[in-house]
Design a protein around this nucleic acid. Structure first.
Lengths: 149, 149
DNA sequence: TCCTGGATGTCAAAGTCCTGACATCGCCGA
DNA sequence: TCGGCGATGTCAGGACTTTGACATCCAGGA
């Protein structure tokens, strides 16, 4: 067996460490958001809407890396809790632009700071330059995989 | 609102891009492994066992970042398909050391090369040095989050 | 010696998510 | 003008994963 043809030791595989880091981040965010009665997809939805009000269900799904169906369930839950509002009818096409309520904005504020603390803890010991490079490198990886070519 | 107190634009958040890359990788592996009738956790289990024969269910669960229950289901499916074998009784304690069958090794061989191709595509355009740094940086992030301190 | 703690395998139940499918609606070229 | 095409929201159905709980087994100290 030639070297490099298989995945090789786990600790040296980029995919494995990537999944490890993502899993750790997911777990940390999960425990951090639990006191706020928010799941990670719910928080992602709030964060998206806070930065880009009026996003449709499909847009939110793409932004949170889930399917439209899952995001729809998330939106319904958030709507029932009074954190998000959607018009009953679409003004243009079928898109239903969602927006945060004041309560939703308050919830987002608390959740966002909590999540920010998790990110800070995750990047502890990393120089700003290294964080920049990590950001750019991960973006390249994502683009390489999402390209349809 | 002071700069940096909240998560900020999505594209500049490490956690967001990390999740994006992990999601893209998961999707790519999913489509790659589908022709082989393997899910990602199933492949992870096979890969783990290929590199470290005799791992117990709990060990495999930790290695694949899932719960013991999920890994147990995976193992049962793999066992039913004749890719993995486990002794009926534990020699020491309750741990049941699992091992690959010849068929399992063959399946792993095919899956491993396929996954390797995905990793190569993901890291296209990245210098070996940059891949090394990515590996090390992600490892630091994971450690920062898993530390119990 | 005993026994408390930690770890493991397993079961049941619930929740979450995805796949497949359908009807609707705007866009754009024939 | 109009018909195909892509995108969107929505509805089941099923697969997967997690949470919670329990009994069992080894290792350590009192």
């Amino acid at each position: 067996m030639h070297k490099g043809e298989t995945v090789g030791p786990l600790d040296t595989a980029v995919g494995y460490v990537l999944k490890e880091a993502a899993s750790a981040l997911r777990g940390a965010m999960d425990t951090t958001l639990r006191p706020l009665n928010l799941t990670v997809p719910q928080y992602a939805c709030l964060e998206l809407l806070g930065q880009r009000p009026g996003l449709s269900n499909a847009d939110l799904a793409r932004g949170a890396f889930v399917t439209r169906q899952s995001m729809n369930v998330v939106l319904q839950g958030l709507e029932a809790r009074g954190l998000v509002v959607r018009p009953a009818e679409a003004a243009h096409g079928r898109q239903l632009p969602a927006e945060l309520t004041p309560a939703g904005r308050a919830q987002l504020q608390a959740a966002s700071t909590a999540v920010r603390a998790v990110e800070v803890r995750m990047c502890a010991g990393l120089s700003p330059a290294r964080q920049k490079e990590l950001l750019a490198t991960l973006a390249v990886c994502a683009r390489n995989l999402t390209e349809t070519t």
